[in-house]
């Protein structure tokens, strides 16, 4: 039996008493789970869209390498997040089965894995793609792990607002991989994800407020109450709806995208209004579900238009 002396991990050992074999006994799939594959897939997708929409061209092998580095960097961030949050993960039903709280991996395994992948992804991006995209990737990883996970998450209800920047940067990295620059166009994609993040997460946290409250994470509904949270969701939705059409207004997305973004933005706003009026969990989950579809459709439309030569 390992005696865990770090006070940040007592709960993990309470839930699943770790033997000295915890790390040795791990499967490759446990390490893969540390990468948060679902989050990684969204990051890769938005990074791909940034890469495809960017003016100019990139050799397919270098483009693939850039996406791989973005994926590995995102995965490394996920591993470091799970390392730091092992104590609260062990106390929430949604995260209880993750590799560390379930005892399949030790926190040290996750820390080493995350650090190695972070360094490897940034170095590879710098050496094989370009320096700016590597710098942006390093900033994204550091922002997610240090600013969001270690500082904001447990201190302020604005955690996911500010921390959302790290999730919004992949299209900027993809764009920079092609052009070596940061432009208004790529920043508009970043802004789209940035302003999408609060209504997306707060809709879920309205339903899961108890889970977050029990572990001391100050999500917005626990701090200012559900009424104020619904009002803020509505405010962000008002900003988000027109923001979705900006890629078409800037000319790097086509007319079809612009129309679709307008309609989808109004639908998003409609669901936010409905949540504000009806004040029930069902409306919150509908908005949460639609928000995922909304972001996916916007980026998929931009990608499809460009691949079809319509923008």
């Amino acid at each position: 039996m390992t005696i865990v002396t770090d006070n940040r991990y007592p709960v993990a050992t309470d839930v699943a008493p770790a033997s000295f074999e915890a790390g040795i006994d791990a499967r490759a799939s446990d390490f893969f789970a540390l990468l948060k594959p679902r989050v990684m897939s969204l990051v890769v997708f938005t990074g791909l869209v940034g890469l495809v929409l960017a003016p100019g061209s990139i050799h397919p092998i270098i483009g693939f390498t850039a996406l791989l580095c973005i994926a590995v960097g995102a995965g490394a961030s996920g591993a470091l997040n799970m390392w730091y949050d092992a104590d609260i993960d062990a106390r929430m039903s949604r995260t209880l089965s993750r590799p560390i709280p379930s005892g399949r991996l030790t926190p040290d395994d996750a820390l080493a894995f995350g650090l190695v992948l972070s360094v490897a992804s940034v170095l590879s991006m710098g050496l094989l793609v370009n320096v700016l995209s590597a710098a942006l990737l390093a900033f994204t990883i550091l922002f997610y792990v240090v600013v969001y996970t270690m500082y904001l998450k447990r201190r302020t209800p604005q955690n996911i607002v500010i921390g959302g920047l790290s999730g919004a940067l992949p299209p900027v990295i993809g764009w920079a991989a092609v052009t070596g620059t940061v432009s208004v166009e790529s920043l508009s994609l970043c802004a789209l994800i940035f302003f999408w993040t609060p209504p997306h997460f707060w809709a879920l946290s309205l339903v899961k407020a108890g889970d977050y409250g029990a572990v001391g994470v100050p999500m917005m509904p626990n701090v200012v109450g559900p009424e104020s949270t619904r009002r803020q969701i509505l405010a962000y939705s008002v900003l988000l709806a027109p923001l979705g059409t900006v890629p078409a207004l800037l000319g790097f997305a086509g007319v079809a995208y612009g129309v679709a973004a307008g309609v989808l933005g109004l639908a998003f706003l409609g669901l936010a209004v409905r949540l504000y009026v009806k004040r029930d969990n069902r409306s919150a989950m509908q908005l949460f579900g639609f928000s995922i579809l909304y972001l996916f459709l916007l980026f998929a439309l931009m990608l499809a238009e460009r691949l079809a030569g319509l923008s």
């Binding site: 074999e21 040795i24 006994d25 791990a26 499967r27 490759a28 390490f31």
Partner: peptide, 13 residues
């Protein structure tokens, strides 16, 4: 089982 898991990890690595 531990050896099998270790082997699968080494192969993945």
């Amino acid at each position: 089982d531990m050896h099998r898991r270790r082997r699968s990890r080494n192969i993945a690595l």
